[in-house]
């Protein structure tokens, strides 16, 4: 079992370390922060190691986790927004690596493409658009709001109290959970609905004849029922061993069969976000043709009111 006292001690150390690292004018104490932060990470590792080892987690996890945490700390402590964004890309990359570790290859690449590729680039654009130097003489000088953190003590204390509470709860909660999720579904169960994929694989392996199509797939027995185009002559075909469901297949099937409405809603949200971004970022032009016509408007509305009264 993980020793909570070490975890809490690591939280305290991490909090103090982060305090020293947060940006401030003339911050010469940042090495202390770095040491304390590293100590906190080490303490956390120690706690994990004493708590029963990796349980199937290999060295890559520790590397990537260290990378992610370090990049994240640097991201929030770096006083230049561009660097912060770049460190965030590093976090994304480390996270993507972890996803690969968790056999979520598709999500790993989606993360890199969407986050590192699209969202972060947008951020960088905006940073470059909106960044300004406090004075023209020193283009590299930091603005006040970038150079200093705001209420670092309160925020750090609150954050690490939250972290300690979260971790405490987490270990209580997961301690009550089974070591392995008991009943998990049959491997490659999605094959039952992926008849097209099965048929293509069988055809490529020449296991079915050209006139035959797959009617039914039994994922558990790894067999498929093939039928003649004419409708008769059913026969059962064994699936080749190398026919597996890929991560993309599984995600796609789950997305479309289990969450079709959510998928639609997500699409609508994206479209609305696009519309909203266009409306918000559009520059209001002064003196549009409609404004120049507004001189007539009072007269028009008055005549409308008169007309309404006449109708009454």
């Amino acid at each position: 079992m993980v020793q909570m006292s070490i975890i809490y001690a690591a939280c305290v150390a991490g909090a103090i370390g982060l305090l020293f690292l947060l940006p401030r004018r003339g911050n010469r104490w940042w090495p202390i922060g770095a040491v304390l932060g590293g100590g906190a990470l080490g303490a956390g590792l120690l706690a994990l190691a004493r708590g029963g080892g990796g349980g199937g987690v290999d060295l890559f996890f520790y590397l990537l986790a260290f990378l992610a945490i370090g990049a994240a700390v640097r991201m929030i402590t770096h006083s230049r927004p561009v660097y912060a964004a770049l460190y965030f890309i590093l976090v994304v990359l480390a996270t993507a690596g972890l996803f690969v570790q968790l056999a979520a290859e598709f999500m790993a690449f989606a993360l890199i493409i969407v986050y590192a590729g699209a969202i972060l680039i947008t951020y960088l654009f905006v940073i470059m658009l909106a960044q300004e130097a406090p004075d023209d003489q020193h283009p590299d000088a930091l603005t006040e709001y970038d150079a200093t953190a705001r209420e670092p003590v309160a925020a750090t204390v609150a954050g690490f109290v939250l972290l300690a509470a979260l971790l405490g709860m987490m270990y209580r909660g997961t301690g009550a959970m089974p070591a392995h999720a008991a009943a998990h579904r049959t491997a490659d169960a999605e094959l039952a609905v992926l008849t097209g994929k099965v048929q293509a694989a069988l055809r490529a392996a020449d296991l079915i004849r050209p006139g035959e199509t797959i009617r039914e797939v039994d994922a558990e027995a790894r067999t498929a029922v093939a039928a003649q185009d004419s409708g008769d002559g059913l026969r059962t075909v064994a699936l080749p061993d190398d026919l597996r469901v890929s991560n993309v297949d599984a995600v796609g099937v789950s997305l479309l069969s289990e969450f079709p409405v959510s998928l639609e809603v997500a699409g609508v949200i994206l479209m609305l976000a696009m519309l909203g971004a266009v409306v918000l970022a559009r520059k209001e032009r002064v003196g549009t043709p409609r404004d120049s016509k507004s001189g007539n408007t009072p007269h028009d509305s008055q005549s409308l009111i008169v007309g309404a009264e006449g109708a009454l």
Binding site: L48, G53, F61, I69, A72, A155, L162, L163, M170, T174
Partner: peptide, 22 residues
Amino acid sequence: SILALNHYLLLSAVLFVIGFIG
């Protein structure tokens, strides 16, 4: 396994709190 899950959740919590402090 649950032990590995704890590792990931701990990392998740730490990243979350760092983001929050930021």
